[in-house]
Nucleic acid binder design. Structure first.
Length: 424
DNA sequence: TCTGGGGTCCTAGGACCC
DNA sequence: TCTGGGGTCCTAGGACCC
């Protein structure tokens, strides 16, 4: 039952480098929405000690000093390259779980255990050759161990050029390796749990592995006790097949500039709800309620603070953009207060269920519903063909003063004819 | 202008009902 | 009048991940 975790190295930075080879060997970062935080760092930047999610404006001096090159995030580019990487990886196993934009699990059961190291190398070389993105491969019997093996491959702890297979390690070797890795590197152990573990004297992966799962369960939660079992080779987290639907869908953004007027908040909420509804239909789900929230800047001390959210039940489960937008705007109007400078808004679709399970009600008008569904399908098709956002509801507005800042975005090399890479 | 991301799931605890 | 157990549903907040 071995499985592999394939993870792209410094994914967003690597995407930028594919189309701009001059960035190779230079310190490069990619920033989050609004050019807020550092979300991807090249190895050169990691070596400078720059942390993940650090606010960019605080790094101005350091970045000048070391000539760090910063890019705004270009999700159209990263999403497209991700799809190419995932498609190639899917050919290496009958079962693939895409875990995030830059990593996936592959089921390797049935393969010759002795050949997996070589197979891992083939995977790396194929992705590098066909897309230009470097990846590392971790192989083990559980998801948590595969994540850890991937960590070892990335840090070159196992000495095997981008691939690490715990199956090729004997017990003594494995224990020594685990005893040298801080417990915070384990998947599922964040800063909080890590602190509490340290207080209990559990410092390394090996310490955690040898702690009784029952003790962990009573002091923490069933989630972390699963982690302990997984570290011991007992799978507790199943491989999820493609199409396992999400339980909630969130779309939220900070604004490029503070917003005070209800009309502008409505535009942002309509826009985010439209995006959330597209994800919802992509999953084949319907929502039974939604939550709208708005907030002022949480960091500026001097400003008046306000944050509020409201849950709006839907009269019946739906995936109809117009019904969702209308419900979200209705909710927004009840929580909006004049006189605040808003910095962020968001929409959360909740109570998701499969569209095919919903019960029609007495008051349904099938003809009307068919018309509505057909219009939504047309909108989705146009947006897929012409690019996301080509066709939106008028409620989303056209000015978008609230839209995010992206001052140093690279071109959409692969998704926009006008921005193709020019050679020569 | 004036800088601080976005998304998902789990758990604990309260309300309510039988 | 007070005391029970046990289940479900909901919400808020915590924690994690990338």
């Amino acid at each position: 039952m071995p499985l592999a975790l394939v993870d792209c190295n410094n994914f967003y930075v690597s995407c930028e480098r594919v189309f701009n080879p001059k960035l190779e060997a230079k310190p490069v970062v990619v920033l989050s929405n609004n050019d807020g935080c550092v979300v991807s760092r090249s190895n050169e930047v990691k070596a400078l000690g720059l942390k993940m999610a650090e606010p960019w404006f605080k790094l101005e001096k350091l970045s000048k000093q070391h000539g760090i090159i910063a890019y705004s995030s270009n999700y159209a580019l990263y999403g497209d390259l991700s799809a190419r990487v995932m498609s190639i990886l899917s050919t290496f196993s009958p079962r693939q779980e895409i875990y995030s934009i830059d990593e996936c699990f592959l089921d390797l059961s049935g393969f010759d255990p002795q050949s997996l190291m070589a197979y891992g190398q083939t995977i790396r070389q194929t992705v590098k050759r066909n897309v230009g993105i470097p990846v590392c491969v971790g192989i083990a019997d559980t998801k948590t161990l595969a994540k850890l093996a991937n960590h070892c491959a990335k840090k070159e702890l196992s000495g095997n050029d981008g691939v690490c297979d715990f199956g090729q390690m004997d017990k003594v070797e494995g224990r020594a390796l685990f005893a040298g890795i801080p417990v915070k590197e384990v998947w599922g152990v964040g800063p909080n749990i890590s602190r509490k573990l340290l207080n209990m004297g559990i410092k390394t992966v090996e310490d955690l592995r040898t702690t009784s799962a029952d003790k962990i369960r009573s002091q923490f939660s069933v989630v972390l006790s699963r982690t302990v079992n997984e570290l011991n080779g007992t799978p507790c987290i199943e491989l999820e097949d493609a199409g396992t639907p999400r339980q909630q869908i969130m779309v939220s953004r900070s604004f490029g500039a503070a917003v005070t007027e209800l009309e502008e908040l409505i535009e942002s909420i309509a826009y985010y709800t439209t995006g959330a509804a597209e994800k919802l239909r992509h999953d084949g789900s319907v929502a039974t309620s939604l939550c709208v929230y708005i907030r002022t800047n949480q960091f500026t001390e001097a400003e008046a603070k306000y944050q509020q959210s409201i849950v709006v039940p839907l009269s019946q489960p739906t995936d109809d953009t117009m019904k969702l937008v209308s419900a979200a705007c209705h909710g927004l109007k009840t929580i909006y207060r004049r006189g605040f400078r808003y910095k962020k808004s968001g929409v959360l679709l909740m109570g998701l269920q499969a569209r095919k399970t919903i019960q029609p009600t007495l008051f349904d008008d099938p003809a009307k519903q068919a018309r509505s569904a057909s219009m939504i399908r047309t909108m989705d098709a146009i947006n897929k063909k012409m690019g996301s956002g080509s066709l939106t509801l008028a409620a989303s507005g056209t000015q978008c003063r609230w839209a995010m800042r992206r001052e140093s975005k690279s071109p959409n090399y692969t998704t926009d004819w006008k921005e193709l890479l020019a050679v020569g």
